[in-house]
């Protein structure tokens, strides 16, 4: 490498154009190698998803009929229906949505707007994030101990709903906290500067801006609750139900439970019924996620 001779009054040059262009090719190759590598990684995920979709659709589409939605569970694959599970899942949502959203958003507002920054609150914040990583079966055991046994709610919709609410609560809290934190401090100051109380500022300034983010996070968390199976198994939710629940104290079954039951039966045709059930569950989830995206796009505020 040759460094140009230093002249008086001229800066010494350290970057030699010749060696820069010599290395250029190698740098570009490294760049494209990694680009290809990361594209392949994406492809693997897409491929798996594609195979899954194909298998399930090809197996289950034949069993998707009007009868499938109107029948209860049955010993005969051709008579088996998803009515009880679908209605059960809707009932579950009817409990989980209000319970988890009220507690989740309330906690987030308290932590972000009211709580002072001190060690105790930092500890709480950190633990809520950790709670989001606790396996769902552990929440199932918690629900079994507290709601099913101690509060004697049995394997009712209420007990399962409370358990599921606990499971997704950390996710909702974290999502709501992030949405609230994204509201710029200067609009809060503007509100306080006019003599607004904290509550007025939260209701009139913070929440209107944060609500799209809060709802998006909540709906995504709810769709997790729709698909969870482990807590329901631990609580002892039955799979064969020949009636629709008439209240939150009734027992019920849910989509993932029903699918799990069909999938473990020996008859080959039940595998196809399970696939049909999965299609219904995925349509359910897709619908919820679309609503979340819609809300985010429609109400997003830009500062």
């Amino acid at each position: 490498m040759r460094i140009t001779e230093q002249q008086p009054g001229v800066n010494k040059r350290f970057i030699d154009p010749a060696s820069v262009s010599k290395r250029m090719d190698g740098r570009k190759i490294t760049n494209s190698v990694f680009k290809t590598l990361f594209f392949m990684a994406t492809l693997v995920a897409l491929l798996v998803l594609g195979i899954l979709f194909y298998r399930i659709l090809s197996q289950g589409i034949g069993f998707l009929s009007a009868d499938f939605f109107q029948n209860f569970a049955s010993r005969f694959p051709e008579k088996a229906g998803i009515k009880a599970a679908l209605v059960g899942s809707l009932w579950l949502m009817a409990v989980v949505a209000p319970v988890s959203m009220f507690h989740g958003i309330g906690t987030a507002i308290y932590l972000e707007e009211y709580a002072k920054k001190n060690r105790v609150n930092d500890f709480i914040r950190m633990n809520i994030s950790n709670l989001a990583g606790v396996p769902s079966v552990v929440f199932g055991l918690l629900g079994l101990t507290i709601f099913v046994r101690a509060l004697a709610l049995g394997n009712s919709i209420l007990a399962a709903g409370f358990t599921m609410s606990l499971l997704i609560l950390p996710v909702i809290i974290v999502a709501a906290q992030e949405a609230i934190r994204a509201v710029p401090q200067h609009v809060r100051e503007a509100s306080y500067g006019m003599g607004a109380t904290k509550w007025q500022t939260i209701v009139r300034v913070v929440l209107p801006s944060a609500i799209p983010g809060i709802l998006t996070g909540s709906i995504l968390a709810l769709s997790r609750a729709v698909g969870e199976t482990a807590p329901l198994i631990v609580i002892g939710v039955p799979v064969i139900i020949q009636f629709l629940p008439s209240g939150v104290m009734d027992t019920f079954t849910a989509l993932p439970m029903q699918i799990y039951d069909w999938a473990k039966r020996p008859q080959a045709d039940f595998q196809k019924v399970a696939s049909a059930g999965i299609i219904v569950l995925m349509a359910f989830l897709l619908l919820m996620n679309s609503i979340a995206v819609l809300i985010r796009n429609k109400f997003q505020k830009r500062y």
């Binding site: 200067h186 503007a190 500067g193 006019m194 300034v205 209107p208 801006s209 500062y303």
Partner: peptide, 15 residues
């Protein structure tokens, strides 16, 4: 703050 209004450094209207 009802008696004392404030105008901030950066314009901060509500959205």
């Amino acid at each position: 703050r009802t008696r004392v209004g404030m105008v901030f450094q950066k314009p901060n209207p509500f959205p």
